[in-house]
Write a protein that binds this DNA or RNA. Structure first.
Lengths: 207, 207, 207, 207
DNA sequence: CATGAATGAGAGTTCATTCAT
DNA sequence: TATGAATGAACTCTCATTCAT
């Protein structure tokens, strides 16, 4: 495979010079903004290059196609989410705190990178494989945390994949509402704790 | 309203004949399939009309634009979800059952109308207002059920809007995984009960 | 020729009923307004029928094509101009008055039928033969008046076709400026007299 | 201005290379011929590019739309008329000769650029503002000449705007008849002198 | 590496006209 | 006569991609 890739005539090698690296980076940043603001189909390569301040033709020095730069961004954001969560739970003291802190880190990430929703969501149409991979990988990681919590005794022993998807869905929609569609009156700091209480007690009234 | 509509010269009036009604319906069905299979941007009007078995120009007898038929479908599906849930909870005996049954009805609906995810999700890009309206309205309805459950004593008195979004996110992602991305080995009948247990006890291990 | 026309399968016969006559008239009036406001190409048959309050298909009961109704209007206006001028000079006492009164009648006609310029001018593109015929016929009539004035001794004996075109151009542009593009501050009643003075003395300073 | 233009993302910047300048010029020439022969609505962009020998898409590298290239041509011709007249009267010895020579230059220009009538006349429908501007500016320039003739004592002191429009109309229609619709038997060289005689003595018989 | 002109397939949309009712 | 649905050719415009400089 390595050789096959090298043989792939249209393949693009990483920039060899510092100047090239900077140009590539400017393109990625411009694409993030444009895709985030207008979406994939409403964005043209020429808008990306204009925003990046480079010539139209230069785009193809760094990316094979419009899809290619989009995929690169999806991967970048997918990684960003993973890392944010991983870092966020380093100091958590139990499994419930872990889930709360993972959500909290995710919300922070989403607030700083508002484009993430539009880019990952649009992957459903532009690059379905990335889209599915992102959510399946995320679910796997959550599932792993659930398993750890089962072992530690915090969580019910019967949890399965569906629980991981339920937690993920909760997180994603809380992010949609309180990061992307945040309103001035929202107390967004309270959200992670709300999620934790749901995972701890569900919605039940106290006995 | 009547006059304003009449003044809008390019506006489209509902079909005046039975034949017209049938043609419009055929177009809606063809569009559902095409948008569901290929997505909005990969679908051309001519594919829709070919599938519907009418001439290209006939499309514009019934819809102002590609966006317009898409919006009509989003509204239709958004309504379908609402109705499915409403019907599904008619016989539920308590608030927890209501949530379980609503999810169950939604999963059934999604399994029958696999296109719904692609169409509603793509609304984020094609018609953001519908997309947001769909989720905000759905959250409102869930919130209303939560309030009813608080009054009835089933639910914790502290539930708020965020809880509704959490429940909605859980449902949406369970639908994504177990209706849209269902695998043969899945026991999808068990899903609603899993959701109910989360809402009842969270993920906690029994005391 | 009469028979040949009758044999022409697509040919349209004059309305047989009073109702038909009224519908045809409504179409002509609607077309006058639409062509006058938007021009030939920006006007669609459906706008004409909507304005006339009849069904789209009914248009073809009365006119063979969009060009056909346009031609009918050009002819109507061309005739209107001819008649207005003819009536306007009935009481004129000499050849100079005749020209003044013809212009005056034309200006009145154009003020009442503002659409005339757009319709006759657009004939240059829609039906060049009518356009040319209109101006050549008008020039011929003016030329005839010039000849009469030469015979009566009012006019210089050397006048020829070019003089007729010059007079016509003067009239047409005075109409453009003082009927179609009239400004509130204009003293449009003075215009015919100005034209007469030009035809009488040119622009020369008095000796 | 610079910044405003740059901000207008879809705006078209002047060709940066010599090759670009040539392509733009070829398009203008092809458009002149096509609009002149068929008119604006009967001409398609693809006919223009075919005649220019460039690809369809290249059109939009240089012009924003079919209207845009048309406007550019109207401006060009409007300018051409102005210049032709200005040059034509450089050696005229009095005000009457000036008018004669201006007309003569205009007739020459129109004979060399037969498209001018169709293009300027069609502006009435394609870009009414240019059409009106062309004639109002032309009338202003004629009016200025009339004023100069009043000061010099050649012309009657009472001349006003209407006289300018009358002169312009005369010229335009003499051009229509003797440049655009010229006939073999016409003595077109005599036309400017005829116009001069009208401006000198009107149509009156000599005393 | 950078530039920007050139390409052309492909899309959405319009609308004059026809025709079954 | 009147209706309005149906037709499909034709058009303008977009834009990802290529390539000569």
């Amino acid at each position: 495979m390595g050789r096959a890739d090298a043989a792939n005539s249209g393949a693009i090698s990483p920039p060899a010079t510092e100047r090239g690296r900077r140009t590539r980076q400017k393109l990625l940043e411009a694409a993030t903004s444009e895709f985030g603001e207008r979406g994939f189909h409403e964005t043209s390569i020429s808008e990306i290059t204009r925003r990046a301040g480079v010539a139209l033709g230069s785009f193809y020095t760094y990316f094979e196609s419009k899809e290619a730069i989009f995929k690169a961004l999806v991967r970048e954001f997918s990684d960003g989410v993973r890392q944010a969560a991983a870092t966020g739970i380093e100091d958590s003291r139990d499994s419930f705190e872990k889930e709360r802190d993972a959500l909290s880190a995710f919300l922070d990430f989403a607030r700083e990178h508002k484009e993430i929703y539009r880019i990952i969501d649009e992957a459903e149409f532009v690059d379905p494989a990335s889209y599915r991979a992102h959510y399946e990988n995320t679910a796997l990681r959550i599932h792993d945390r659930l398993k750890a919590g089962m072992v530690s005794g915090d969580f019910n022993k019967e949890l399965e994949e569906a629980h991981a998807w339920a937690v993920m869905g909760m997180n994603v929609f809380l992010g949609l509402r309180y990061a992307v569609w945040a309103r001035p009156e929202d107390d967004f700091e309270a959200i992670p704790e709300i999620a934790r209480s749901i995972l701890t007690n569900g919605l039940s009234a106290p006995d």
